[in-house]
């Protein structure tokens, strides 16, 4: 024990240790041991701390199904600011938020929620943000509709009941920002050829990522899911302009009127036409720029010859 206790006796006066280099040959065994132990302590300490630091970096990617509370800073800043106190968890009236445990895929001790378990109910007074003592949840968020906890994405078009032609609509109905964050977009149902599909469509400018759509999806595994924004959202190159938006903004095409080329080889076919162009809706208002190159033919009621695929050949 003597050799082990030695450093303790001189712990409060480490300064003389700097000098041994100046004192020539007779470096005592005790001193050598002591210097070794200091070196081991320094090396071990720094290794452990930096190891923890590196581990934290490698594990700081949030898993796809874990969402941060409203007002959370961007993930890297959040991990600097959040002290893992759980005050947001305590003030959440719906027990939505949880603190992660060591070994969870979410950084230890930080708050998160899983939409499919308990979604965010979007309290108007945002108590979780008010509770945060450090600003990891930013108090500049005062309107919960501006929260961006994640982004919903209808990931499974094969299972979504609305894609199958049913009128489930549950995700649309429960959306707290209904008709802005999720709309139902009517599409022709080519399978029956006479019904519409109303496709739930998420709009990133309004979706808060609360997760109510994922929670309430009636399927055993949700077809619509909420992901952290950077996972769910693409981005156009910054220089891209949408022609139709620019046209509306400037009252005309920015590159002048274009020559309309005739379309050949599709006489009598509905392919490649917008719904408004279809012969079955000749009275629909048609935007001038979308005017068909070929006027609809007079022989409207004649159905095209049976082809494979889309036509069920059912006649009333």
């Amino acid at each position: 024990m003597g050799s082990l206790r030695l450093p303790d006796t001189v712990m409060d006066t480490p300064r003389p240790l700097r000098q041994p280099a100046a004192v020539p040959p007779p470096v005592s065994a005790a001193r050598r041991r002591f210097i070794n132990s200091i070196a081991a302590a320094a090396g071990g300490g720094c290794l452990l701390a930096l190891g923890a630091g590196l581990y934290s970096r490698s594990a700081s990617a949030l898993p796809a199904q874990a969402l941060r509370p409203p007002g959370a800073l961007p993930e890297a800043d959040f991990l600097a600011a959040c002290v893992r106190c759980g005050l947001c968890v305590r003030d959440c009236p719906y027990d939505t938020l949880k603190l992660s445990d060591l070994g969870d895929p979410v950084p230890t001790g930080t708050p998160y929620f899983r939409a499919r378990q308990i979604p965010c109910e979007m309290c108007e007074d945002i108590p979780c943000v008010k509770a945060c003592p450090t600003g990891a949840l930013d108090r500049q968020l005062t309107d919960i509709n501006q929260a961006r906890m994640g982004l919903a994405a209808l990931v499974d078009h094969e299972s979504c009941l609305n894609f199958l032609g049913l009128r489930c609509d549950v995700c649309y109905r429960v959306c707290p920002v209904i008709d802005k964050a999720i709309t139902l977009e009517p599409q022709h149902n080519p399978r029956s050829d006479r019904h519409a599909m109303l496709l739930p469509t998420v709009h990133s400018d309004a979706c808060t990522g609360c997760g109510k759509c994922e929670k309430s999806c009636v399927l055993p595994e949700a077809a619509i899911k909420v992901f952290p924004r950077q996972l769910a959202q693409g981005a156009l190159p910054a220089h891209y302009r949408k022609g139709w938006e620019e046209k509306a903004r400037h009252g005309g095409s920015l590159i002048g009127e274009q020559v309309e080329m005739p379309v050949r080889g599709f006489d009598g076919s509905t392919a490649g036409r917008a719904p408004t162009e279809l012969p079955t809706a000749p009275s629909a208002p048609v935007a001038p720029e979308a005017a068909p190159a070929m006027p609809p033919k007079a022989t409207l009621p004649v159905r095209p010859a049976p082809r494979g695929g889309l036509d069920s050949h059912w006649k009333p």
């Binding site: 701390a49 930096l50 630091g53 590196l54 934290s56 970096r57 991990l79 600097a80």
Partner: peptide, 12 residues
């Protein structure tokens, strides 16, 4: 480690 990684590394 906190300064280098920009996160509360020890709290992991």
């Amino acid at each position: 480690a906190a300064a280098l990684t920009g996160s509360l590394a020890w709290e992991w």
